[in-house]
Design a binder for these strands. Structure first.
Lengths: 256, 256
DNA sequence: ATTGACGGTATTGTATGCGATAATTGAAGA
DNA sequence: TCTTCAATTATCGCATACAATACCGTCAAT
């Protein structure tokens, strides 16, 4: 994101009573949305790391908006579990505990099972083709194993949710999905590519065949596999910091 | 709108610099929460009817807070699908279309199926007892068939979700549940008591027996039954207004 | 009579201000 | 040197200020 324009560079005293034509008439609500999306991406891509403090002032200044809009974005992100909001202590990037993490993954499995069941036997030819094209992209990306691979894996699941045509289900899947990203950023091993492409392929087959039970089962185990592959299991924590951090954070302590 | 008190009559210059002790130190964030809860209840209990306009000013004035907090509440409620927020046109109580309604019910069924599966065979004796006590309450209330009956039916499902110990699942179930209330307010027949107590009882039995499949199945059909009993099926709309209203509202038109 | 233009008012979107709370620093005492 | 506590500073919570729309009624023109 290019924040090249120095909107609030000057000592901000002269903005009242300015000549009427220098206000750019960006359409309303759009700036708020942008702040939200910027922060969301920054968190998911780990530019903002879990536990990191998020001062309203500096962020607003950086993004060229007032604290009001930043605050609004924090609200939404807090509901989605991406930031934590403590009274009088402001916002920080969420640092889910292992327990919360497990909750999220459990719910996600359930949600995506619904997706699979809904879609089984109801895919149009076009949709099936789109999914297969996507999987081929995943295969290509998987070879050079960049961060692209991870993004595509995630998008596959979002695409599936979209195809159900159920807006609420889509929203929940998206939410669970972002939270999973955050969780894997904390507890996951460095960069396992998370989703096995072959499992995606099998799933598509089951969906085309209209085998709801098999599709649901595949999805369930696929996501279960993601968890184990990415190491969510707490046996043998690798770093003492990681063991303590959640506790420290949840008590309002701030490790350096 | 009663403009009895001349709020902005005075040149509003003298409100700064008041004697230091007249600020009640209510703890921060609590007022925001209160506004949110107040509006939420008002909507669910249909004091605020679907489609009704929600001006920030008058609501804030009524609740004794500034537009800022009202706005914040609107944001949360909008995410939960209880209010609609249109740019530059403000907030109104949501008026879900039949399609959205179906989405919500579908997701709810899936979520509560998860609840049932999670709980099956995992109820403590205390929990089972609590549920049975609740059902007895429902039976009592069912006789005089007041609005109490509806509230208790809803609470049964919330209680179940709580017992899973999964905070996220609980939140989703609560959200779906409130949206269902709103939906039934629009499309439901006058006051069917929505949940059959006997079905609740059967469900508890299945949960105690640890029969996950049966519990899930019961839950699924129970909720399906709620839909049919409450008449969500669009055959034979009773009133032209009700047919048109969703379309009007969704286009931003405001029927009288 | 309907429609379209115009002007005033009501409401929204966003920024800013003010008091309050927590973080931090620094000084004094153990 | 290590604690304890007070003063300073950074931030937050909330209200308010102000500009930008949208709404509504009036009036003129077809």
């Amino acid at each position: 994101m290019t924040w090249s324009e120095p909107r609030t560079a000057e000592p901000e005293k002269k903005r009242a009573k300015m000549s009427a034509k220098m206000t750019e008439p960006r359409q309303p609500g759009l700036r708020a949305q942008s702040v939200y999306k910027a922060l969301r991406r920054a968190i998911i891509e780990q530019a903002l790391k879990p536990g990191m403090k998020l001062p309203e002032d500096s962020i607003g200044e950086q993004l060229g908006v007032s604290r009001t809009l930043v605050r609004e974005a924090f609200g939404r992100l807090a509901i989605e579990g991406l930031v934590e909001l403590k009274p009088n202590r402001g916002a920080s990037v969420a640092y889910p505990t292992l327990e919360e993490a497990r909750d999220v993954f459990d719910v996600r499995r359930g949600l995506e099972r619904m997706v699979a069941e809904t879609l089984a036997g109801n895919l149009t030819a076009a949709q099936a083709a789109e999914l297969e094209a996507h999987v081929r992209l995943e295969e290509k990306a998987h070879e050079q194993d960049g961060p692209e691979s991870i993004r595509l894996s995630g998008e596959f699941h979002i695409k599936l949710a979209e195809m159900t045509g159920n807006a609420l289900l889509l929203r929940y899947v998206q939410e669970a999905s972002s939270r999973c990203s955050l969780i894997l950023a904390i507890y996951g091993r460095p960069h396992s590519s998370e989703c096995a492409v072959s499992e995606h392929r099998q799933l598509i087959d089951a969906l085309r065949a209209g085998d709801a039970a098999r599709a649901a089962h595949l999805m369930d185990h696929h996501l279960q596999a993601v968890v184990t592959r990415a190491l969510l299991t707490p046996r043998g924590e690798r770093d003492i910091r990681e063991v303590l951090a959640p506790y420290a954070l949840s008590e309002g302590l701030t490790p350096p």
